[in-house]
Design a protein around this nucleic acid. Sequence first.
DNA 1: ACCGTGTCTGGACGACTGTCAAGAATTTCC
DNA 2: GGAAATTCTTGACAGTCGTCCAGACACGGT
Lengths: 205, 205
Amino acid sequence: MSTAEKVARRQVDRFEERRRELADAALHTLSELGYARTSLREIAQNSAFSHGVLHYYFRDKVDLITYCVRQYKAACVLRYDRIVATARTPEALARGFADGLVATLVEDATMHRLWYDLRSQALFEESFHADVLEIDATLERMIARIVGRYAELLDRPVLTPASMTYAMFDGMFQQALLRRFAGAGGATEQLHAGALQLLTRIVPA
Amino acid sequence: MSTAEKVARRQVDRFEERRRELADAALHTLSELGYARTSLREIAQNSAFSHGVLHYYFRDKVDLITYCVRQYKAACVLRYDRIVATARTPEALARGFADGLVATLVEDATMHRLWYDLRSQALFEESFHADVLEIDATLERMIARIVGRYAELLDRPVLTPASMTYAMFDGMFQQALLRRFAGAGGATEQLHAGALQLLTRIVPA
DNA sequence: ACCGTGTCTGGACGACTGTCAAGAATTTCC
DNA sequence: GGAAATTCTTGACAGTCGTCCAGACACGGT
């Protein structure tokens, strides 16, 4: 590799790193304010830079948000992979999964509400379609892995399609999140019990 | 009733009627553009009036949107009540329910995406909490009536809590809506099959 | 040390926002 | 028919928005 190539590579890396840094700040602001109320100036204010720099690293607002969504997805997978249990018994796996759901509901609540917000935006903005569908597919596979392992440990077949399974867990999680932010009590308990119950419904005896 | 009271009553009625009319226009615009992109001027432009009149009938934008959400709820209940089957056999009820879901997914698609958009907003804006929770509770009861009747026809007990049942149907519907707007095929078929399958899971043999 | 390139700032621009008020238009009532 | 009350239009207001740009700054290579 020539020195010129090394220089170019390093600059590209720096550029990418700064993009990630700015997208991080943007994600933080978005998760706090929501898509409708987040402006580029507000994002810049929650970063170490001024608002002008955003157009140096991103073509426009849609470009920034799209990049944010992709970065969010990466975080998503990591977070959920924590949940994938190393358990040796189906009971331990189920418990670990339910515990993990409740934990991320509490710890990453603002990020989750951002996800549902952005997914709703995808119903109106075509430019979000591809990324949202891809993230949903990733989450669906994650759920399928857990359910598949659970059934494997029980030596039973999975009779429910993965898309349906994901939709049901997602619906439950969304309800729990809503109750949490709306101040209604019992959200964590309902999610925990619901996840366990749903698991036994999907892999019936 | 005195004549003065009659006059007052008539004025109140007219006032309420105009509010409904404007909220209708607002709902139409909202369902087309989404919460984040809808302005009062745009709403007025899709009505027979100018933008200033909105502040004659509504205190501010939040007041208007809140009123819209409440009006939307009324439409919701009516629409879903169409689905509540008069069927005499469980098979007919299940089929009618699944058909109804698919029909409203296709016919009222823009209204449904508005609902999910506004419910996401409730995760960020406290003023939406009460109405969103109330609408969700209404929909939950609607689902519970259908499932309850289905179990009754089969002479079996319902073993799943209503909140969990609603969450699962809602999750499936939301996925179908997303696939529809994202241009992915098979949304209606998946929803139809999923609803039937979920019904048998909730009321197991 | 200096130059050139890459990075960043801060202000300016026009468009758009919610809100409001003055007055025109319309309706109601005697 | 005219006065009074209501309903509606229009334009203005102070902000904020995304976007762009001239110039200041930083820093690695020679």
